[in-house]
């Protein structure tokens, strides 16, 4: 039931950014209440011929992190604004011309910031194409400065 609710939330565009929607990122599945995000291969994500552009892969990783974090915070009744602090992406293998998936793990969720690690893979999940670690600042409406 939770998964159905979350899918409705995602499909109502509550979670995905305009950028993520434009790139064609969608929710493929839920595992342990964490969304598995997917992007199909096509011109909008292609770098060198027949391979994913590193920037598009990074966009998928970031979107998986933001979506997982937003859903977790919603569950906790928190609605902070996200301010990304940084991302470190490791490119492990060239993303080939087939769908790519990504799922986040919220390593730490504090009052002011979150640390999230994300992994992206294609047909073989044991052979990730990229991974990332992100730090995201969580700014509650009440303590926004700008």
């Amino acid at each position: 039931m939770w998964e159905a609710r979350a899918t409705v939330a995602v499909n109502n565009k509550i979670v995905l950014s305009p950028y993520a929607r434009a790139l064609g990122i969608e929710v493929a599945d839920f595992e342990d209440r964490i969304p598995v995000m997917k992007v199909s291969f096509g011109g909008s994500v292609e770098g060198r011929p027949q391979y994913f552009h590193g920037g598009a892969t990074s966009g998928l990783l970031e979107t998986a992190a933001y979506t997982a974090l937003r859903l977790r915070l919603d569950e906790e009744g928190r609605h902070p604004v996200f301010k990304p602090i940084n991302i470190t992406v490791q490119f492990l293998s060239g993303g080939r011309s087939e769908p790519a998936f990504a799922k986040a793990r919220i390593t730490r969720l504090g009052a002011r910031n979150a640390n999230v690690s994300v992994e992206a893979w294609q047909s073989d999940r044991d052979r990730p194409i990229a991974s990332a670690v992100m730090n995201i600042l969580l700014v509650e409406e009440s303590d926004q400065r700008d």
Partner: peptide, 24 residues
């Protein structure tokens, strides 16, 4: 580009395109 926003409410560009730009 309006459709590259990361946050519609705050009208802020997504970070993904900035990574792509830096990578390129």
């Amino acid at each position: 580009r309006e459709d590259l926003l990361g946050d519609e409410d705050r009208h802020v560009m997504a970070t993904g395109p900035i990574i792509s730009l830096l990578d390129m």
